[in-house]
Amino acid sequence: MFEEGSIFNQLLVERLNYFIYVVLLLIGLWAMIAKNNLIKKLIGMSVFQTAIILFYVSIGVKDGATIPIYLPEHDPHASHLPLESNASEVGAHGPQVLEASLVSSYTNPLPHVLMLTAIVVGVATLGLALSVCLRIYRGYGTVEEDELLEKLEQMDGQTGGGRGRRRPRKRSPRRNTQESNQSRKVTSAEKSGSQKPNSSRRPNPKNAKPKPSGESLNKSETKDENRPKPVRKRRKSPPRKPREDSSQ
């Protein structure tokens, strides 16, 4: 099965690193596209980035090679010196250009160094994405994509596309013949009815008195168009003042 030249040999023995990275890459891609939960999507993103890191690191590896740190026996000036005085001697003479035969026993350090940068970028992306998830959860009370889309659609239907809040009032007398429009309104009314227990569950953090985290939470809620107006106004004014004080 694993004899020379067969497909199994090529995939699982000779090119095992590429095989694994492609499998991981596809798992990550699938999770990012197909998963419904936003956190699972982020886990997929992490797997995706890790697969690329594996690819880079594996191309720097050589059979039987050591870590790329200047060995004392490779330094032409330090070779005859005892090991203790070696450190200062290297500094005095500076690094030498090594011959090809000596270099071949080191692994290639560059891919590893590149991946340090890529890991940092990945961590930053993940942190940012998690904080965005947190804001989505505080704003909409869900991290499931289908529920989120439902709520977004509902919001767009209520406000006429984000900012144009005057629109639905104007629109209803004009297009009274369009049944689809009316039926959509009915469903949105139903949804807002069914959503009530959900939204009544959530005010908990808002009633908690302004801790720093609670303030930023309230701030993000002030622009939320999902809520009824009178409640929003009451909530809007008190948290503003302490927040500006605390940021000074």
Partner: peptide
């Protein structure tokens, strides 16, 4: 707005 956060997630 909060809507922007949802859009940002797709962008990320």
């Amino acid at each position: 707005t909060n809507r922007a956060a949802a859009a940002t997630f797709n962008y990320i």
